[in-house]
């Protein structure tokens, strides 16, 4: 068994495997650090910036920072928590996130984080951008109104033949997810559902089966996001 590294998060003594990133290590020690782009086992992207922590007085993204022996990490402090709330608010105002009619409601990580961080009225003005829905793929709908550009789909979803079907197109504030028309035409229902589940929000929708999970049984209906991690240790 490899040697464990000792470090602290908010003065709590923690242990990690050598080479582990701070986010995964925190999770293994029962500490929740929020993230919308990270998928364990997939190369971190540092895209959403929600996992910011303070190490030696500097802000660092926990997903891209390897743990080092003796590291002192600040996580649950007002400055960081407010920064995270500000990022969540920014994500809400930059898109069109109408939870009431969204089928991802109750299973949406962005919504769940907004509840956990008790978001009320965002401090930024709503942008109400004009965005489209791409419904041309037989199995999937891409609702650009809800996409937070986390790149999870690009980084971790491959079709049955191991090919990427998602990619970015355009640049700057016009940047958006593109779905390969030809490859996506052959997706099975199972794969389409998998794509939907990878997306943290309701931007990827498996066609034709919305709202089949009753309220009360959805992922975040009973317990807040992160409580599964916090209850482990």
């Amino acid at each position: 068994m490899s040697e464990k590294i000792k470090f602290t998060i908010d003065d709590k003594e923690c242990f990690a495997e050598k080479g582990q990133n701070v986010l995964d290590a925190a999770t293994d020690n029962g500490i929740f650090i929020p993230a919308l782009c990270h998928i364990r086992g997939v190369k971190p992207a540092g895209a959403c910036r929600l996992c910011n922590v303070k190490i030696a007085g500097r802000l660092m993204t926990a997903c891209t920072t390897p743990v080092e022996s003796g590291m002192e990490i600040e996580n649950d402090i007002p400055e960081i928590q407010d920064l995270r709330l500000a990022i969540i608010e920014m994500l809400f105002v930059e898109g069109n996130h109408f939870c009431p009619a969204c089928e991802k409601s109750g299973n949406c990580e962005l919504q769940a984080l907004a509840y956990r961080y008790q978001m009320m009225v965002p401090r930024f003005p709503y942008e109400f951008p004009v965005k489209e829905i791409d419904a041309s793929c037989p199995k999937l709908i891409i609702d650009h109104n809800r996409c937070i550009l986390c790149k999870r789909c690009i980084r971790s979803f491959k079709d049955e033949n191991g090919k990427n079907i998602f990619a970015f197109k355009k640049r700057g504030h016009k940047l958006q997810i593109n779905i390969d028309e030809k490859l996506s035409a052959n997706l099975s229902d199972e794969m389409a559902q998998k794509a939907m589940d990878i997306c943290p929000v309701g931007a990827i929708i498996h066609k034709g089966k919305g709202f089949d999970e009753p309220i009360g049984t959805r992922k975040y209906d009973k317990v807040p996001i992160g409580s599964d991690i916090e209850s482990v240790v």
């Binding site: 089928e103 829905i133 089966k209 919305g210 709202f211």
Partner: peptide, 14 residues
């Protein structure tokens, strides 16, 4: 208009 049809029962009740 433009929304997926299965959203209608949830959306229009608003």
């Amino acid at each position: 208009q433009g929304r997926p049809y299965w959203e209608a029962p949830v959306l229009v009740q608003r």
